[in-house]
Design a protein around this nucleic acid. Structure first.
Lengths: 187, 187
DNA sequence: ACTCAAATGTAGCAACTGCTACAGTTCCAG
DNA sequence: CTGGAACTGTAGCAGTTGCTACATTTGAGT
């Protein structure tokens, strides 16, 4: 059931939209199927299992966010890149992708559940690679870019988790600016 | 059922141990009760609902980790504090507490489920306050400490999520050192 | 010894989960 | 026209979930 039929591709995209909106943790096949205008029976027929469906959704979501990064204009320098990358994390539709990654990481990496763990590993590599490439395109040398991304990406995860904590926007912007300054100091 | 009976206190501690080991996301009353040598019926009798039990567990876990921070010796300076705080995050028993926080944040802040959201807010305030105090005790001026903690705590969340990703220990130590250097540059 | 409330055990409900057996239906190749 | 594979609808299974009704035991205060 690993074949990529037409229907499977359509349903993967639609399911990704649904999961980005409703979250991964409480995901259930029947409500999802209803939203897609089909039945849980058909989802399982075309995807084989819930796990395969989830894996397809996570890959699709990750692809969307990395595609966005790769389409970005280069930034002026490392410091500006931090601001630009954080702005990307707040773009509607894209912000949901990184939130979904955090959910998958919590399920897979902390709780050790498959297929979340494997897909989260894969997603993390592609995502950080895309960030590194953006820094390189922005004139940062690759070894430094790699070190910077470790910190930037980690801090962004934390910012993402804190976002609904309604820390004021001013404080958050201050934190992003501090992060940019701090990372720039690595050079 | 908000009273703190003796049994409730004992079970809260034991339940915290259990949750720290088995995770929050798939938590179910019956296995937990079996582990405590009782029944789901009794847990609900003494706690009122699963949500109240979870809230008690999260508060207990958070108390353990902040207690640890408050008992730490002051660090030499901001740079050393970053290393010392990260070392605290890796201490057995304490590392589980921050992992549990990430799970609660994923459930509450991203998925918007109560009581996780409220308790995560509360936990985050107490935890960051404890970190700020440690920096102040280490000779950092409070306004700078607050700014630094925003970045340190966020980056730690990301490190924590990436831990099971088996990035080499060398790379992780490098990232912590970079973070320390970067944050020190804020001064 | 008696009372009454707190505590506990037993059994089960209603809802939900992923998944599957079975019975078709559709549709193209021969 | 026909055989067979791909597809779909119906119904249901076996398991789990939080929670509760009801009956019973326990134990301290009078």
């Amino acid at each position: 059931m690993a074949t990529k039929t037409q229907r499977r591709v359509e349903w993967t995209e639609a399911a990704t939209d649904y999961v980005l909106e409703h979250g991964l943790i409480g995901l259930s096949l029947r409500p999802l199927a209803a939203d897609l205008g089909t039945s849980d029976r058909m989802l399982l027929y075309h995807f084989g299992s819930k796990d395969e469906l989830v894996a397809a959704v996570l890959r699709d979501s990750n692809e969307r966010s990395t595609d966005y990064l790769r389409a970005m204009e280069p930034s002026r320098d490392l410091r500006h890149a931090v601001h630009d990358l954080w702005a990307a994390m707040l773009v509607p539709h894209i912000d949901r992708c990184s939130r979904l990654y955090v959910e998958a990481a919590a399920l897979g990496l902390l709780a050790g559940q498959e297929p979340y763990a494997s897909v989260a590993r894969e997603a993390n590599e592609l995502w950080t690679a895309a960030m590194v490439d953006h820094l390189v395109r922005s004139g940062v040398r690759r070894p430094l870019a790699r070190r910077a991304v470790r910190i930037i990406d980690s801090a962004f995860m934390g910012f993402q988790l804190d976002l609904p904590l309604d820390v004021g926007t001013r404080d958050r912007n201050r934190a992003v600016a501090d992060l940019a300054e701090a990372v720039a100091a690595l050079a």
